[in-house]
């Protein structure tokens, strides 16, 4: 048990001393997740909204596909994206493998179905009286769609936070596509994995504390968004 207590004590020292290696992993994590979340939100929110709001031929199969992709194994995502961005792959010349951008591509593929499906679900679950009310108050179809999007804004915040939580804690994709390169693509999760294998518990725990802190902030934000959403 001693080594755990020592690890925790050393972790605080590392954090308080702003250990450069620890903060390099935090920085890499934040950079890659901000790229991937931006891309996934820009693609996923409109797709999810259309899936949940519009009635068109093929909507149900697309919805089913999106829901199925929620269970996409992360190792498979890593493998597929690796195949695309490796030197022999179709996007090989872009030189994305073992970069934060390449890692962000994998994280985007992971987050996209989460954002699409949960957005569609949020729109579908909206009170049907909302659309009737907007129309009877004179909204044109696009105005009604915009107002609907506004009505589910608290749920969309939760969607974003849920996807962020999933992406930031992912290790398989980060290892395969980022390569866990020190000072470059070593993220919090890959660093924890590596440090644990090396027996360097202090740095692993320090990074774990940061991850836990991020999860805590995320959870508080989720709770606030959920509370606001439930007031509707």
């Amino acid at each position: 048990m001693n080594f755990i207590a020592e690890g925790i004590a050393q972790a605080w020292l590392l954090l308080c001393a702003f250990d450069p290696e620890t903060f390099s992993a935090v920085q890499a994590t934040l950079i890659s997740t901000s790229y991937s979340m931006t891309a996934a939100l820009l693609l996923g929110l409109p797709c999810g909204f259309v899936l949940g709001y519009c009635d068109f031929i093929g909507r149900k199969p697309l919805r089913l596909l999106s829901d199925t992709l929620l269970a996409f194994p992360t190792v498979l995502i890593g493998l597929l994206v690796y195949a695309f961005i490796s030197r022999q792959g179709p996007l090989g010349e872009w030189g994305l493998l073992f970069t934060l951008e390449g890692l962000a591509v994998g994280q985007t593929v992971l987050a996209l179905p989460i954002i699409t499906s949960l957005t569609a679900q949020a729109v579908e679950n909206l009170d049907p009286r909302c659309r009737q009310t907007l129309l009877t108050l004179g909204a044109q179809p696009l105005q009604a769609a915009w107002a609907t999007l506004r009505e589910v804004r608290f749920q969309l915040i939760m969607v974003g936070l849920t996807a962020f939580g999933r992406v930031v804690t992912e290790v398989g994709i980060a290892m395969m596509l980022g390569g866990n390169i020190r000072w470059e693509t070593r993220t919090i999760t890959t660093a924890i994995s590596l440090e644990t294998n090396k027996g360097e518990f202090a740095q692993g725990i320090a990074l774990g504390v940061v991850l836990l802190g991020m999860a805590f902030v995320l959870n508080v934000a989720l709770t606030l968004a959920r509370r606001r959403g439930q007031s509707t």
Binding site: C130, T136, R153, S231
Partner: peptide, 12 residues
């Protein structure tokens, strides 16, 4: 023409 529903919906 505008309709007031039996249980009206208010925007958030």
């Amino acid at each position: 023409a505008t309709l007031l529903l039996q249980e009206p919906y208010l925007l958030t």
